[in-house]
Design a protein around this nucleic acid. Sequence first.
RNA 1: GGUCUCAUAGCUCAGCUGGAUAGAGCAACAGCCUUCUAAGCUGUGGGUCGAAGGUUCGAAUCCUUCUGAGAUCACCA
Length: 596
Amino acid sequence: MFEKILAEKVCESINSLYQQTVSSDLVSVQKTRKEFIGDFTVVVFPFTKSSKKSPEITANEIGDFLKAELPIIKSFNVIKGFLNIEFHESEWVNFFFENKNSITYGTDENSGNSKPIVVEYSSPNTNKPLHLGHIRNNLLGYSVANILKANGQNVIKVNLVNDRGIHICKSMLAWQKWGEGESPESSGLKGDHLIGKYYVLFDKHYKEQIAELVSTGISEDDAKKQAALIVEAQEMLLKWEHHDEEVIALWKKMNAWVYQGFDVTYKRMGVDFDKVYYESETYLLGKSLVEEGLQKGTLNKKEDNSVWADLTADGFDEKLLLRSDGTSVYMTQDLGTAELRYDEMLPSKMIYVVGNEQNYHFDVLKLVLKKLGKDWFDAIQHLSYGMVELPEGKMKSREGTVVDADDLIDEMISTAKQTTEELGKTNDFSQAEADELYRMIGLGALKYFILKVDPTKNMVFNPKESIDFNGNTGPFIQYTYARIQSVLRKAEAQYNSEEVLDAKEIALLPKEKELLRLLYEFSQVVKIAGDILSPAIIANYVFELAKEYNQFYHEIPILKEPNLALLKFRLHLSAFTANVIKISVNLLGIEVPERM
RNA sequence: GGUCUCAUAGCUCAGCUGGAUAGAGCAACAGCCUUCUAAGCUGUGGGUCGAAGGUUCGAAUCCUUCUGAGAUCACCA
């Protein structure tokens, strides 16, 4: 890496010129801004303390040293405290030859040997269909897993399905009462949507009952607890915990419907898992951990038999871990599944892709594990992503403002179809080819729209404005790829990726140099994205790359270039760019078409 | 009320551990298809980086205070 070589040489120069030692990671080597001549810029302000000279003089002295020591440097110039260094063009051409044909360029293939990283994402409830918030979660989890793999990590993707609890009992009860045996087959509804329908129905009737009770003079809080429906639902949950055959059978039937529905949505989103956990199978695990904590005296039991962790010393409150009736809460379950996961896979890290509304939960989770003496507590990393909001604020299922995942995907694909047909792009496509293209573009637009935003930040989605296909979008990037493929197809006679080109014939134009420069940065982009778990880094990079290529494409002729060596170079440069575009978007879970 | 996050162009967002004159896209306006795919390219306008202090050679970035928005603090998950 050029930056590393430069940084180390700069340290040497400080040592040699001023007899001072500087650590190489304190040296700031950055890309030279376009308005100046050079490839890399060293900021010399920090070294003026060592040199006791002005920034300009210091920069010149370091520049002289570097130039004398490193033959790869062609020239340097100094502007204020900035030392701009220009490499010989051959360095960039060499970089090009070394990497242009690598289908794994920028990624680390040495995976599999290290301790695994577990990435948990999706983690749906089985009482309603997935919505836009889940889409962000799924796309993030899937992409982060890809990015970690590209960084040489052994990644295990897991899903923890929240398949038990009062919420699913509500749907079950409503279906029992008013469903009249309705099934996905009889209704034509997708299983998860069918269940969601009864969850909403439950809530509707429940609210009516509450209102009725309130009108008889009962307080709202009491009404919420006394309403017949909620009491019945709780009875059902109790029956479930006691393995009541009828309830279990109903539960299995309805969950199966939901899973059929989820599978369709997962498949359409293009996400998958290496392992699926079901909370119904793991929810009891936490209890033994809590018992252990009680024995050790790190947890305490109150008079009513409820068990608590006292976290006041760490600036938190007390946290309930077992209810007075001995049943476990969300936190208890998470303690159990965390330990199960750790014991099963001995991971170096356990990443949980969970919304930022649960920041407190994860702080407490780690703290309780620490209290319980689990020294691996720090392996837990909460990838806390921001909410997807509507222009008027948070999505609310009660107000019907939730953007349904399936609906949105349908809309994206049909918009892609309409737009593509208007442009006449698929006139010579077969129906199957065309449909595949619409799917790719629609999903590409959606995925890019979600993933280009910094995961930690809340983002806004306006349902009234459809997601764009022009500008900083997925289809723009897909289009650039397809455009390159088109050129390569036209150049069949001149293009052979294996052909050895003559480096001496190649003189880089500014746009070509900039393209190469961007391609060079890719491996660092992958590394940063992996370090901070941010697909947005990749998304913004690949947009930049596509934009740069389009400028090159418009400015410089490829197939009409009279010099055959240059023509071939540009074809290979185009192919290299297409390759990096493909690798990049694949990290985001986006596919690229050969034609569009 | 306690804790935590966020605030950058009309809108949606970049701006990596502090570095040169804060960038894109959309929207608006003006151009470019007898020439490799116009889902493209070029140009114009648009900013007190929420406000005020501070640290620094240097602050959108770090610290403090204030304003505004949001999250969270359940014997819910």
